[in-house]
Simulated assay, not measured.
Amino acid sequence: MSELVSALVLKPDISKPRWDQSTFTGRAKHFFAVTSPLNLFHSDGTLDHFKTVVDDYKKGNFASSLTVSQLWKAKHVVDSAFHPVTEEKMFLIGRMSAQVPMNMAITGGMLTFYKSPSAVIFWQWLNQSFNAVVNYTNRSGESGSVSQLLGSYCAATGGALTAALGLNSLVKKAPPLIGRLVPFVAVCVANAINIPMMRSGELSKGIAIVNENGEVVGHSQKVARSAIAQVVISRIAMATPTFAFIPIVVNALERRPYFKANPRIFLPLQTALCGIVLSISTPVGCALFPQSTPVSLEQLEPELAHKIKNLSLPPKQLFCNKGL
Rank of each mutant, 00 (worst) to 15 (best):
K16A: 13
C188W: 02
K73T: 13
G26A: 13
N39M: 05
A244Y: 06
A287H: 08
N135M: 05
A239N: 04
K172D: 12
K309H: 09
P84G: 01
G214N: 10
V189L: 08
P84I: 06
S220Q: 14
P294A: 14
G275M: 06
S226Q: 13
S312N: 13
V134H: 00
E88Q: 14
L149A: 15
I233M: 03
S2T: 09
S312M: 10
A105R: 04
E202Y: 03
I248Y: 10
G60R: 05
A237T: 07
P175D: 06
I195M: 04
I280K: 00
F130A: 14
S69W: 03
W19I: 10
P290R: 09
S64A: 15
S118N: 12
A160T: 05
A33K: 14
V217S: 07
V34C: 03
I14N: 01
A81G: 02
V232F: 00
D79N: 07
A239G: 12
G144A: 12
Q70I: 10
E87A: 12
M238G: 06
P17W: 02
Q230T: 03
H306P: 02
N127L: 09
Q291C: 09
I236N: 05
H219Q: 14
L253E: 07
G166F: 06
M102F: 15
E215L: 14
G218W: 04
I236G: 00
S6L: 12
F130L: 12
A132V: 04
G275D: 08
R235L: 02
A105D: 07
R255C: 11
A119V: 09
S80C: 04
V100N: 02
Y57P: 10
A74R: 02
G108E: 01
P302R: 06
Q99V: 13
P17G: 02
P314C: 08
T67F: 06
R27S: 13
A244K: 00
V284G: 00
L38R: 01
V171E: 03
P247I: 04
P101E: 05
K322Y: 07
Q124I: 12
R225G: 13
S145E: 15
N131T: 08
F91A: 10
A164L: 05
G109D: 08
E87S: 13
M90K: 08
F266Q: 05
S234D: 03
P263V: 10
